[in-house]
């Protein structure tokens, strides 16, 4: 087959379009364009109950995502759930007395950790532990408590 200039241009366009498509998927479709989760510092938080929290669940401050859950362990001695979270290094001004709570996005949405900044002048750094935590709300427990208080009231 004779290779004409048009053929070469067409092949060039084809390869370029393919590379653009891969680039598009990396930047626009996946999380690569957003935060880089690998660079950041890790802090831990202990929860009585981490509910439906999963590894990679988002961590937000004021509704903005600042990191992700890195791992969730069970502590054999205190019977607590130890959640390790990675916070992107650009968010390095969170006070040490910040509190962490587990919330649900929407009624049926996934669970995430919301951080509430405190007033301390020192900032959280790698390896620190968040002391103030609020467990996940488990729907059955709330309904149970509600029914119980109803019955007591009567």
């Amino acid at each position: 087959m004779q290779i004409t200039r048009t053929t070469e241009i067409m092949v060039g366009l084809f390869v370029a379009a393919g590379i653009v498509a891969i680039f598009f998927m990396a930047m626009q479709v996946s999380n690569l364009g957003g935060l880089n989760d690998k660079e950041g510092y890790k802090v831990t938080a202990r929860f009585e109950n981490s509910g439906g929290l999963k590894v990679k669940s988002p961590v937000t401050v004021a509704g903005v995502r600042v990191g992700r859950v890195a791992s969730i362990h069970f502590d054999n001695e205190t019977y607590e759930s130890v959640v390790e979270i990675t916070i992107a290094s650009e968010f390095n001004t969170l006070p040490t007395d910040s509190s962490a709570g587990i919330y649900t996005a929407g009624l049926l949405g996934e669970q995430y950790i919301g951080l509430e900044p405190g007033g301390d002048e020192e900032f959280l750094k790698g390896g620190d532990e968040i002391q103030l935590t609020q467990s996940a709300l488990v729907l059955e427990e709330i309904i149970g408590q509600f029914l119980f208080s109803k019955a007591e009231g009567e």
Partner: peptide, 16 residues
């Protein structure tokens, strides 16, 4: 071998 990944990427992009 070279074309397939490029075509698949194009397909996914256009699909999205």
């Amino acid at each position: 071998f070279i074309s397939m990944p490029l075509l698949a990427a194009l397909f996914s992009m256009v699909g999205v």
